[in-house]
């Protein structure tokens, strides 16, 4: 073969020989078909797009509902509006935002701990009869059961959305902070567990195998070789999920738990849309701040590793 086997081929020939994957092609085709189906099957009523019918509703919303209630029938300047916004922020907004942040923090700490404890049972390299070995040797039935059931548990935990977990838990535990925290923790430990297990599997195997042949036990390797190796990456994932946790914690309050969402739902049922929009904006601001914080921590972690 010449050093550049494709150099003499015509463009047409090159195009014909490009690597193609049947599954990818079928997937793309199916997704396009699915999209066409979704828009045409009749569940999405295209005449809803006819804004003329909605204009009245929208006009009322923008012109009447959005003006601050206490200032609605009088001349008002921007300072009046700012004073009104400040009152709402002080009476409900800040408290709600702090609660949201606190619950998200507890939830992410819990789920990181649970995921850290469980992921060793799900990683293919550690959950076998010969951990961190060279991959040879027979697998025992017991270890296979442990690994598969942990993996299945992770899948189940993350497949059900936080909102549904919270909805179910509120009915059982009552409207304390626990249902919200547990719902977030359940979903996120499923995600962090899977990502963590994958990271452990992808660790460079040789140092771990060397330790094993030197007689280190499973726990020794996990704590003193694997953990330092995968911790940076795991923490990156934890902070990625922390952003999502804060977003979700805001919303889960709508089920009657005292986060920002509680106050949003409160004014929504009273149809005080002026206050609702303000509180939603506060929630967005909170998410933005946490995004920045988490981006900063992740940059530091990346620099350190």
């Amino acid at each position: 073969m010449s050093p550049l086997p494709h150099a003499q081929l015509s463009l047409h020939e090159l195009k014909r020989r490009r690597p193609r994957e049947r599954l990818v092609q079928i997937t793309l085709l199916l997704l396009v078909l699915l999209t066409c189906y979704a828009w045409t099957c009749g569940d999405i009523h295209l005449d809803d797009l006819d804004l003329a019918r909605r204009t009245e509703n929208l006009e009322r919303f923008v012109q009447e509902d959005l003006a601050p209630y206490s200032l609605r029938d009088q001349e008002h300047s921007w300072t009046d509006v700012a004073a009104w916004a400040w009152t709402i922020a002080v009476t409900r907004g800040f408290e709600g935002a702090l609660q949201t942040l606190a619950m998200a923090t507890v939830a992410i700490t819990l789920s990181a701990m649970v995921a850290f404890l469980l992921l060793w049972c799900a990683a293919r390299t550690s959950a076998t009869a010969r951990p961190y070995g060279d991959g040879r040797g027979r697998e025992t039935f017991a270890w296979r059961v442990v690994r598969l059931s942990t993996t299945a548990l992770f899948v189940y935990l993350r497949a059900i959305p936080e909102y549904i977990w919270a909805f179910l838990l509120v009915a059982m535990l009552g409207p304390s902070a626990w249902p919200l925290i547990l719902a977030l923790a359940i979903h996120n430990s499923g995600i962090l567990g899977r990502l963590g297990a994958e990271t452990v599997e992808n660790l460079p195997p040789r140092p771990l195998t060397a330790l094993r042949t030197l007689g280190a036990t499973r726990t020794h390797i996990a704590l003193f070789a694997a953990t330092p190796g995968f911790l940076s990456r795991f923490l990156l994932y934890v902070f990625y999920r922390y952003e999502t946790c804060v977003r979700e914690a805001t919303v889960l309050g709508m089920l009657g738990i005292a986060s920002l969402g509680y106050w949003i739902e409160d004014v929504r049922t009273k149809r005080y849309y002026d206050e609702m929009v303000l509180l939603v904006a506060m929630g967005a601001l909170l998410v933005l701040c946490v995004d920045l914080l988490s981006a900063w921590v992740r940059r530091r972690l990346r620099q350190a590793s």
Binding site: I44, D48, L58, M276, V280, G283
Partner: peptide, 19 residues
């Protein structure tokens, strides 16, 4: 920054329930 459920709540208020 605004969660999808909060967008839904805003649009429900502005446009009413529709697909």
């Amino acid at each position: 920054s605004v969660h999808e459920l909060l967008w839904a709540v805003l649009f429900l208020a502005a446009f009413g329930l529709n697909s």
